[in-house]
Design a protein around this nucleic acid. Structure first.
Lengths: 207, 207, 207, 207
DNA sequence: GGCTAAGCGAGACGGTACGTCAGGTCTTATT
DNA sequence: AATAAGACCTGACGTACCGTCTCGCTTAGCC
C-alpha cells in the first residue's frame, strides 16, 4: 500500500505514512515549530494542539517527550535562541559588568527573544515544572557565571572581601529584570551605568 | 451555596430568584469569592466559570463588570489583601529602608498574598491589560512612596545629590523581586541587610 | 461587534455568532446530520466528532443532550426513518401476519434503514443504554402491536386459546431477525410463507 | 506483568528479551489473555493494545496473525469456551429438540460465554470479517447439526415431508436468539416448551 | 402606586484546547 | 527470519473554559 520512493515511505496521497520516524527528525520538527511560534506570537499562543498541527507531529508524541507546555516552550526557546552566556574578563570588573549588563539589556529589549524570556518567567510563577527547568537550564548557570567573574574581582581586590557576591547579582541583573517585568520605568543606558556606579561607589554622602 | 437570609426573595427550591440585585451586593459576593479562590488556589485556577458558580453571580454579570481575568484577579486581590504601603520615616534612611524591605519580604514570603502577587506579575507578562492595571493600581504607587522617602533622605544629605533615587528602588526592592520570581537564591534577612549595606556603602575596595 | 441583519446575529466574517440558538433549530440540525450519516455510512462511522463537524453543532451541545453514541444514533434513526408500525387487520390472521412479515422483510432487506437497524441491535449488545432505549422506543411497541393482532385472532377463534401469543412473535419476526443478524440463510418470500404455514398448521406428521 | 519462569531468557530489568519465541507459545499466551478478557469484561473492552500489554505479545505479532479485532475475539472465544455442539438423538425428535434448546438456553443465559456470544453477533453487524468468520466457524455448523437431526425426524415420519427443515431452525433457535438479542421478554423454560409445542402441533384452532 | 427598563441569574451555544486511548504502520534491536 | 519493544500519526474520546447570546424575572427609579 505504501510506495517506496527512496528510503522514506510515502503513501499514495502524498502524506507521510504513520509508522515510526527517527526521533531526531521528529524532535527537530517540533523544536523548529515551537521556536517559530514563540518568537512570532509569544508563550500565550503556544498550545500542544497548534504545535502538533503546524509541526506535523502528533499530540501523543509531544506529550511523550514534553510533560508540560512550559517544558516545551523552554526547549523550543533555547533551540531558537542561542543564549549568550559569555562573560568578558578584561581585568576591569566595572567595565566588564557594565558591558555584560548592556549586552543583556540589548537582548531583552531589542530582540523578540527578550519578550519570550519574560513570558517564560511569567509562566513559571504558576508552573512549578517550568520554574524548575528554567532554573536548571538557564538562570542558575547565568548566576554562576556572573558570580565567578565577581569573585575573581574580589580575589584581585576590586571588591571588598566581606561582600557576598551573590547579592550583587540581584542588585545588578535583578534590577534590570525588575524594570523588564514591572515596566514602570524603562531600561536605559543611564540606568545601567547608574546600577554599576551606585553599587561600586555607594550612595551615602561622604563627608 | 451560601444562603442569603435577610430581605432577599428566595424561591422554594432554595435558589435565589433571578431578578435584579443591588450592584454592591453582587460586587461584594464576587470579590469575596475571587479573593478566597486566589488565596486558596492561585491565579491559574481562577476562571470566570468557577467564580460564577461559587459566587452565585452569573457569567453575564462578571463579563459586564470585569473585562478580563486579570482585571478580576487584581480587583479580588486588593479586596482580599489590604496592601501595606506605609513607609516609615524615623529620620534614619538606612533603618527605614531596611524596615520596609523586611515588611515587604515578610508579606511576600510568609503570607499567601505573596504567592498571588508573584502570579499576578507573571500573568501580566502575557496580559497587557493586567500589566497596565497592575502598574496603575499598585506598583507605580509603591515606587512613588519609596522614591519620596529616598528623596527626603537625599534632601537631608543622607544620600548623595547626584544619585537617581529611582534606580535605588530597582536595586533594593527589584533585587528582592528577582529572588522571588526566579528563586535560585532565598530571601533571607542577611540578604536584605546586604542589599542596604552594599548600596549605601559601596562595594569597592577603598584604599 | 455582531451585526444585526434581520433577527439573527451574524458577525462580520459571515459565520454565525456564538451565542445561544433556539434549541429546536439545533436539534433539527443534529438529527438531520445523524440520519444522513447513518444511512450513508452506518453506525460504525458515526462519531460525536463528525456529527459536530458536519452539523455545525458543538460537541458540548451534543454531549449535553445525548449521553451516548447509541442515544444519538437511535434518535437520528427514528428521525430519518419513520417506522411503519401499522398492522393490517382484514379479519384473516394468516394473511395479515404474512403481509406484515413481508412489509417488515422488505424494509429490512431493501432499504438502507434495515442495515442501520441491524447495526443498532448489534451495538446494543455492548451498550446497555442503547439497549434500553431501543426497547423503549421501538421493539416493545412493535411486540405490543403484533401481540394485539394475534390476541384478536385468538378471541375470534383463529388461534387456539391455550397458546401464548407472545411466543409466536419470536417464532415469526424473531425468525426473520435470526436470518438478518446471522445470515447463513437468506430471507426469501418462501421463507416467510413457510414461517406462517409451519406455525399455523404444525409440522408433525398427522396420521 | 505476568512473569514467565521456565526456560525463557529474562533480562535484568524483569522484561523478556525481544528475540523470537516459538509460535505456539506466543499463540497460547494470546488466546489465554483474550479468553480471560472476553469473559471478564466483554467484547467492548477487548483491544489489541490491552491484549498486547497483558499477554506480553507485541502488537506487531498480533496484527500478523489476527487481521481484525473480531478475528481475535472469535479465536479467543472458541479457545476459552469449548462449544457444545452435540445434538442428542433418542428417536423422539420433540424431546431431543427441547433438550438441545434447554442446553443452548442454559449456556446463553447462565454462563459468561453467553454474553460474549451475543456481543460477537452484535459486533459482526458492523464487522464483515467477523461476520464471515462467525458463520464459518460456528453458526453454519450449528445449523448443519440441527438440520441433520430434523431431517432424520423427517425421514422417519415425525415431521411432514413438505416442510423445509431449515426454516424450523429459525423458528426454534432463532426465536431464542431473538429474546437474547432484544430482551423484551425473558427466556424461560415455558418459553422453550411453547416453541416446540407451537411448531409441532400448530396453533390453529381445529374444529 | 404603578410602569418600565435596566440589570440580573440561568444556562445554552459555538469554539479551542486539554490530556488520553486505541488503531494500524513502521523501525530497530534481539534472539 | 520471526519476534519484542515501542515510537509514530491519526482520529476520536469526554471535559473545561472561553466569550456570546437568549430568556424570563425582579427591582429600582421614574412618572
Amino acid at each position: 500500500m505504501a510506495e517506496e520512493s527512496q528510503g522514506v515511505a510515502v503513501n499514495e496521497r502524498g502524506g507521510r505514512g504513520r509508522g515510526r520516524r527517527p526521533a531526531d527528525e521528529v524532535r527537530a520538527d517540533v523544536l523548529r515549530t515551537v521556536g517559530d511560534l514563540l518568537l512570532a506570537e509569544g508563550v500565550a499562543d503556544l498550545t500542544f494542539e497548534r504545535v502538533a498541527r503546524l509541526s506535523g507531529v502528533s499530540k501523543t508524541t509531544l506529550y511523550r517527550w514534553w510533560p508540560s507546555k512550559g517544558a516545551l516552550a523552554l526547549d523550543g526557546y533555547f533551540h531558537a535562541v542561542e543564549p549568550t552566556l559569555a562573560f568578558p574578563d578584561t581585568g576591569d570588573v566595572r567595565a566588564d559588568v557594565l558591558a555584560q549588563l548592556r549586552a543583556f539589556a540589548h537582548v531583552m529589549t531589542q530582540t523578540p527573544g527578550g519578550k519570550v524570556l519574560a513570558e517564560l518567567i511569567g509562566q513559571s510563577q504558576t508552573d512549578a515544572d517550568l520554574a524548575a527547568s528554567f532554573r536548571a537550564l538557564y538562570s542558575s548557570e547565568r548566576r554562576r557565571l556572573a558570580a565567578a567573574r565577581l569573585q575573581r574581582a574580589q580575589e584581585v581586590g576590586q571588591i571588598r572581601a566581606d561582600v557576598d557576591t551573590r547579592v550583587l547579582i540581584d542588585q545588578l541583573w535583578g534590577a534590570v529584570y525588575h524594570r523588564l517585568l514591572i515596566p514602570d520605568e524603562p531600561v536605559t543606558d543611564e540606568f545601567l551605568c547608574a546600577l554599576v556606579n551606585n553599587l561600586m561607589d555607594g550612595i551615602s554622602e561622604t563627608l
